[in-house]
């Protein structure tokens, strides 16, 4: 049955479909975490996932690059398509998936290595044959941190401030030239100034990448994203469902579903 509140699944300004989950369910052991999620992700678009704690936002996000498989006892039903191909097909290498669909985590997690080596790490593993210096510089520039670190590329990445570390992690992610960047609350550990820089950066990155971001900060979702997906816990099976998926300006001014209205206006959640 077609869900009238998932308007963004019908298309978004002619943007190409990059990824799609089809009736995606995920179990941690016997616990159903997300249930039958149908969701399309569009190229060069920022899509925000919002919803109360435990509604399955991060689980859904991590399903988009097979990160959940690293957790024992996980069972997945349904499909996640990337360019129309099933990510979970038997012959697909999860490492290759994660290269094309990168991830930035909540807490900045640079390696205890130099700034340069942090960015060069991925390309080296994948046997990058081009000019590595140029790639590192370009990645740091794209992550809007080059000017702050260009004179200290040999310094340890852990010596940077939290906001700089997060941008270094974004540089590390984009150094392997992914097509999609998944972000799990990338600014929740940062102060508002550092978070603002990441938000500005997202707008530049979407020119080249497709971005899916989980955030607890609704104002941030409203500020940065083109589309917003609202998830909540369905009472009967206590699992996460996709409730409403629409243009961000529509969802935050005139939501279709009452529970979306209640959540964004702070009446529950």
């Amino acid at each position: 049955m077609k869900n009238e509140a998932l308007i963004a699944n019908e298309g978004f300004d002619g943007a190409a479909e990059k990824m799609e989950s089809i009736a995606l369910s995920l179990y941690y052991g016997n616990n159903l975490a997300i249930q039958d999620v149908p969701m399309k992700v569009y190229e060069n678009t920022i899509t925000a996932l919002i919803g109360p704690s435990g509604c399955g936002k991060s689980t859904l996000l991590r399903s988009f690059n097979r990160m959940n498989e690293l957790i024992p006892g996980v069972k997945i039903e349904g499909q996640v398509l990337f360019h129309g191909e099933d990510l979970y097909a038997k012959d697909v290498d999860p490492v290759a998936v994660r290269r094309r669909i990168g991830m930035v985590f909540q807490k900045p997690n640079p390696f205890p290595k130099s700034i340069y080596d942090n960015v060069a790490f991925g390309p080296r593993i994948y046997g990058y044959q081009g000019d590595l210096d140029e790639l590192v510089e370009d990645s740091l520039k794209d992550a809007a941190i080059w000017d702050e670190v260009k004179d200290k590329l040999d310094s340890n990445g852990l010596e940077l401030s939290g906001g700089q570390q997060q941008r270094l992690c974004i540089a590390r992610t984009i150094a392997v030239k992914p097509e999609v960047i998944l972000m799990d609350e990338p600014t929740s550990a940062l102060d508002p100034i550092a978070a603002g820089k990441i938000e500005d950066l997202l707008q530049e990155l979407k020119e080249d990448y497709t971005i899916l971001i989980v955030t607890h900060n609704m104002q941030q979702a409203a500020r940065v994203s083109d589309l917003t997906a609202f998830m909540m816990i369905e009472e009967e099976r206590r699992s996460g469902v996709l409730v409403e998926y629409n243009r961000t300006n529509e969802l935050f001014t005139n939501p279709i579903v009452q529970s979306t209205q209640d959540y964004i206006t702070g009446r529950f959640g």
């Binding site: 609704m218 104002q219 409203a222 935050f252 001014t253 005139n254 209205q261 964004i264 206006t265």
Partner: peptide, 9 residues
């Protein structure tokens, strides 16, 4: 309070 939706209206 940064109201949204019906509150903002």
């Amino acid at each position: 309070s940064q109201p949204v939706a019906s509150d903002l209206r």
